[in-house]
Design a protein around this nucleic acid. Structure first.
Length: 284
DNA sequence: GCAGTGGAGTGATTTACGTCA
DNA sequence: CTTGACGTAAATCACTCCACT
């Protein structure tokens, strides 16, 4: 059994279900939720993207979110669908022992717990920020210059987490409110404005989109959960009502079920005849 | 206080996929 | 039709911060 619910009230809310593979019989009681944007919303989003300069070549190919759950609300089913399955990954330098990073002496010396990230140093330096006037040794300067390189390291050791400053985050946040997708021009402008690499801006927006979507999904799931509970309760109530009506029907005397009859007199022969209400209605 | 720990937040990377020229 | 470039979503990792014990 599949139940489709739409949150947006679009006229064709479950078109995506046509493409959804049928749940196998092993899926027990399946619950399929479709969280979709209405066409209008999608159009506006597309228009917004076009308005961003028209450089974007396509819109998201994933206008809907589909969740297949086994009642009652077993979210852990997501794990079974492969969402949490890891893929084969390439070499991760962060998993290498420190010895292997000997060539990255400048980075390795930088304390990972340092409150002053290499990026922030870079930001201060480039901005001429007064905070950057703290006494920094030559090593932090080396880190700074390294972080300011626009190109990624070829040896893949650039997976160094750099925390953005509050100002940068706030600015990115504001930009995100205006448009959640950036065209290359906007990306470059933002990067220049914030003294970040374009790639950093790009990644920030990617993460922001993903996490916004995740949050929205959680909210939607909660809403659907409540909807389902309400509907279940309503269903239970209606079933009970049907049972009561059936019970009432079997208890009623036979005559109560007969259609009402009326006595009529034929105007010509003056004979009294009985006519059922239905007969009278159809003019017999 | 202080160290250890678990969880949340977040920047970065990898992979897969769709679109377009 | 095929192919490569490009952009994005999804999944994941790694690091940081913070509350709690």
């Amino acid at each position: 059994m599949e139940l489709g619910l739409s949150l947006d009230g679009s006229s064709k809310p479950f078109s995506f279900l046509e493409k959804t593979p049928k749940l196998s019989s092993n899926d027990h009681l399946g619950f399929c939720m479709g969280l979709g944007r209405s066409q209008e919303k999608r159009d506006s989003l597309e228009a917004e993207r076009r308005g961003n300069g028209g450089d974007l070549k396509r819109v998201s190919s994933d206008p809907h979110l589909q969740l297949h759950l086994r009642l009652p609300w077993l979210f852990d089913n997501l794990h079974e669908t492969g969402l949490s399955k890891g893929r084969g990954r390439g070499l991760d330098v962060n998993r290498l022992p420190m010895v292997a990073l000997a060539g990255e002496a400048t980075v390795a010396h930088s304390s990972p717990n340092s409150a002053v990230s290499s990026f922030q140093m870079d930001f201060w330096f480039r901005n001429g920020n007064s905070r950057g006037n703290r006494g920094m040794d030559s090593e932090t300067e080396r880190v700074s210059s390294r972080a300011s390189d626009d190109d990624e390291d070829d040896n893949g050791s650039s997976r160094k987490k750099l925390r953005l400053s509050k100002e940068q985050s706030a600015f990115l946040e504001e930009s995100f409110k205006e448009h959640s997708n950036l065209n290359p021009k906007q990306k470059l402008a933002l990067a220049n404005q914030l003294n970040l690499r374009p790639r950093q801006v790009e990644v920030w927006f990617q993460n922001r989109r993903a996490r916004t979507k995740l949050k929205q999904t959680e909210v939607d799931c909660e809403y659907l959960k409540r909807c389902c509970e309400t509907l279940t309760e309503e269903n239970r109530r209606l079933h009970k009502e049907v049972q009561e009506l059936r019970a009432l029907k079997t208890c009623q005397p036979f005559y109560m079920q007969l259609p009402a009859t009326t006595l009529t007199m034929c105007p010509s022969c003056k004979r009294v005849t009985t006519t059922s209400a239905t007969d009278a209605k159809i003019g017999i």
